Computed example of a mutant assay.
Amino acid sequence: MQPSDRENAIKFLRQMSIVTQTLKGFMRQKFKAHNINITFEMLQVLRFLWEKESGNQQEIADAIIKDKASLTYLIDNLVGRNLVQRTEDSQDRRNKLITLTPAGKDLSAMIQPWLEEMYQMVALSGTSEELQSSLDVFKNIQENVKQQIA
């Protein structure tokens, strides 16, 4: 590896972290301005449920890329805020289904426009081709790392 390749890789990964933190900050700012007491990570759970209606903890954990222990903590906090509830899975009593409460459903109407605003900002950052190329780079990085740890 050339020194410039190493340096570019470091800069790339740093910038990727900065973008992630900036997007999280954008949403935190919206939450604070509207007195919504949730975190970005809780939002990930809510977004999954807004799209899928319900899911067990493993499905949600896989979708938002969290381990089950972290997800349990997030769900406990969302239950405490009356945004989600746990119910028994009729097909497997050992499993709990996570579903939205009416308050959790109502929150979607307020937050979805902010998410769309965030997506729009990202979309305006490059052409469709550039965004697709960037997505391909991320997928390649993921595959290269997965091969090394397998």
Rank of each mutant, 00 (worst) to 15 (best):
M1S: 13
S4Y: 04
D5L: 10
I10M: 08
I10D: 10
K11Y: 04
K11R: 14
R14H: 11
M16V: 08
V19Y: 08
Q21C: 04
L23G: 02
F26V: 10
M27E: 06
Q29G: 08
F31A: 09
K32I: 11
I36Y: 07
N37H: 08
I38L: 04
I38R: 01
M42G: 08
L43Y: 00
Q44F: 01
Q44M: 09
V45P: 10
L49N: 03
L49A: 04
W50P: 13
K52P: 00
G55L: 06
N56C: 09
Q57L: 14
E59I: 07
E59F: 02
A61D: 02
D62P: 02
A63S: 13
I64M: 05
I64S: 08
I65Y: 05
I65R: 14
D67A: 02
K68R: 15
T72H: 12
L74M: 10
I75A: 07
I75W: 08
N77M: 11
L78A: 08
V79C: 05
G80M: 07
N82A: 06
N82L: 04
V84D: 03
Q85G: 02
Q85Y: 05
Q85P: 01
R86F: 10
D89S: 14
S90T: 14
D92S: 10
D92G: 00
R93E: 14
N95W: 00
K96W: 09
L97N: 12
I98F: 07
T99S: 15
T99W: 04
T101E: 05
A103F: 09
G104W: 05
L107G: 02
M110K: 13
M110I: 11
I111Y: 00
P113H: 04
W114S: 13
L115N: 06
M118L: 15
Q120E: 07
Q120T: 11
Q120K: 12
M121T: 02
A123M: 11
A123L: 06
L124C: 07
L124N: 13
E130Q: 15
S134E: 07
D136M: 08
F138T: 13
F138S: 11
K139V: 13
N140R: 15
V145S: 07
Q147C: 01
